[in-house]
């Protein structure tokens, strides 16, 4: 697609975006192009509507998420994040993840799980703040790539915690 997600949804290319504005822009655009608006139109127009609507969905999905938004921004700055060259080589991150995993295995009470979840959510918040600083202010893309990796790992851990919580309750 020729236009990037930021442009499509009328957002300036920054990491620190207002999610309500994003959602409003997305809904405004979806109102115009959704196939439901073209139900009695010729099939060619219906197809355009479907393509436009699909692309809007894809862009919204990309910008809404803390990780894919960072990746989209790196694309925008022409220094794309390549997961193949960014496998875990960082000993600090490797140690952190092993440590968290061990903790999760040991947890058996609801309260422990809940507290652990809170801890991880706080770490995620901190990483997102750091990401903002590196992408928007410092433009340190190398550092941003490291943060993306850490964020990916933390999000996965959070999902696992929640799954364990649901299974136990």
């Amino acid at each position: 697609m020729p236009v990037n997600a930021f442009e499509t949804l009328g957002m300036s290319p920054e990491y620190d975006i207002n999610l309500d504005t994003l959602s409003n822009h997305y809904l405004e655009r979806q109102r115009l192009v959704h196939p439901d608006r073209f139900i009695s139109k010729p099939s060619e127009e219906k197809l355009y509507a479907q393509q436009h609507s699909s692309y809007l969905n894809q862009c919204y999905q990309t910008l809404k998420d803390n990780i894919s938004r960072a990746e989209a921004l790196l694309d925008y700055h022409k220094t794309p994040f390549d997961s193949a060259e960014n496998t875990i080589q960082d000993p600090v991150l490797l140690h952190e993840s092993m440590d968290h995993r061990e903790k999760l295995m040991m947890m058996d009470t609801k309260e422990q799980l809940y507290n652990f979840k809170q801890d991880i959510e706080n770490i995620i918040k901190a990483v997102v703040l750091e990401m903002k600083n590196n992408l928007d202010a410092l433009k340190d893309f190398h550092k941003a790539k490291k943060l993306i990796l850490r964020l990916k790992y933390l999000e996965k851990l959070l999902t696992e915690i929640k799954q364990k919580e649901a299974a136990d309750s």
Binding site: P35, Q50, Q51, S53, S54, Y55, N57, Q58, Y60, Q61
Partner: peptide, 8 residues
């Protein structure tokens, strides 16, 4: 839970 229509 991906929004439809979509094309990936």
């Amino acid at each position: 839970n991906s929004a439809i229509p979509c094309s990936i």
